[in-house]
Simulated assay, not measured.
Amino acid sequence: MPTVAANGVETYYETVGDGPPVFLLHGAGMDGRLWRELAAPLADEYRLVVPDLRGHGRTGPTDRDDYSVALYAEDVRALADALDCERPAVVGHSLGGYVALVHAARYDPGAFATLGGEVPEPLSLGERVESYRPALVDALGPVVGRERVERALRRVDAWRFDERGKGDIEAIERVHERHGDDVPAMTADERRKLDDAVANYYDVEVDYDAVTAPSCHLYGEYEIPQVRRHARFMAERLDGDLRVIPDAGHVSMVDAPEFVVGALRDFLDGAL
């Protein structure tokens, strides 16, 4: 099982291809299987590196008490250093997109792309209400149990990223059908740390002026308005490319793999 020590964790990763390095980051509660097969056509031009992020998949639990998006970005930088990948391109889905943005502002990659990503700052009144989510968990946790509150919020999250009402559940199920259950499930404590990292993303500060790498921001046709709004904001603020993925929801690379691979190839060929 290929692992490498990076930033205090034995990180599981898979790599294929030869050429400029491209890191492919999965979303919250997922793992590298979401990218492993779907992005394989890019290996004819690029060295693809597909890690399981801290707490996920075959990387598994770590002894850190708390996680954050900034910590995940540090992990990506450390993994790149450990694999002798200088200024790789970083492509991230959902949480991986958050990480790609923070990484771009702090570590100057060769390029970066987000799929279903968001920026930390609220861009609407509704998003400001959402920023109080950690306080909601803290308030209701002692009354009905923190795990029960977080479980309910995860159900909401599973549906909230797709206007068709499908969320990412069906797409993830298709991945599991192909690969079975050979990856360890996330523990309750790791899930707590992950939930806190996602909820506290609102506290992260991104210096957009420090981002010099070319960028591309993609979202599925059926993403909810919030995700579309954030993709447009990033593309405008960073002078990046903006692409809409037809007939796709939040897990767009599963819904429309050929389009996603083609869009990423077009972007990477021009950026690297």
Rank of each mutant, 00 (worst) to 15 (best):
P122Y: 02
P122V: 01
P122R: 01
L123G: 06
S124Y: 01
L125H: 05
G126E: 07
E127M: 00
R128A: 04
E130H: 07
E130A: 14
E130C: 00
S131V: 01
S131E: 12
S131I: 01
S131T: 10
Y132W: 10
Y132H: 12
Y132R: 11
R133F: 06
R133H: 13
R133P: 01
R133S: 14
A135P: 02
A135L: 12
L136N: 00
V137L: 10
V137F: 11
V137S: 10
A139D: 12
L140V: 07
G141I: 04
P142W: 07
V143S: 00
V143G: 00
V143E: 08
V144I: 15
R146H: 10
E147D: 15
E147V: 08
E147R: 13
R148E: 14
R148W: 04
R148D: 11
V149E: 08
V149A: 07
V149D: 09
V149T: 09
E150T: 14
E150A: 12
R151F: 05
R151Y: 06
R151G: 03
A152P: 02
L153R: 07
L153V: 12
R154S: 14
R154I: 06
V156D: 13
V156N: 13
A158I: 04
A158Y: 09
A158Q: 13
D162C: 09
D162L: 05
D162Y: 03
R164C: 10
R164I: 08
G165R: 03
G165A: 02
G165C: 01
K166P: 00
G167V: 05
G167A: 10
I169G: 09
I169A: 14
I169F: 09
I169R: 15
E170A: 15
A171I: 01
I172C: 04
I172A: 13
I172P: 00
R174E: 15
V175G: 12
V175K: 09
V175T: 15
H176C: 04
E177D: 15
E177G: 08
R178L: 15
H179D: 08
H179M: 03
H179A: 09
H179R: 05
G180D: 13
G180S: 10
D181K: 11
D181N: 13
D182Q: 07
D182H: 05
D182C: 05
D182S: 13
P184I: 04
P184C: 07
P184M: 04
M186T: 15
M186L: 13
M186F: 05
T187M: 11
A188P: 03
D189H: 06
D189R: 07
D189Y: 02
E190D: 15
E190G: 03
E190I: 02
E190M: 06
E190C: 07
R191Q: 06
R191D: 03
R191Y: 01
R192C: 02
R192M: 02
R192V: 06
R192S: 08
R192H: 11
K193I: 06
K193F: 08
K193Y: 08
L194S: 10
L194K: 03
L194N: 12
D195I: 02
D195P: 04
D195F: 07
D195L: 07
A197H: 02
V198D: 03
A199S: 14
N200V: 01
N200D: 15
Y201K: 04
Y202Q: 00
D203N: 00
D203G: 00
V204M: 01
V204C: 01
V204P: 02
E205P: 00
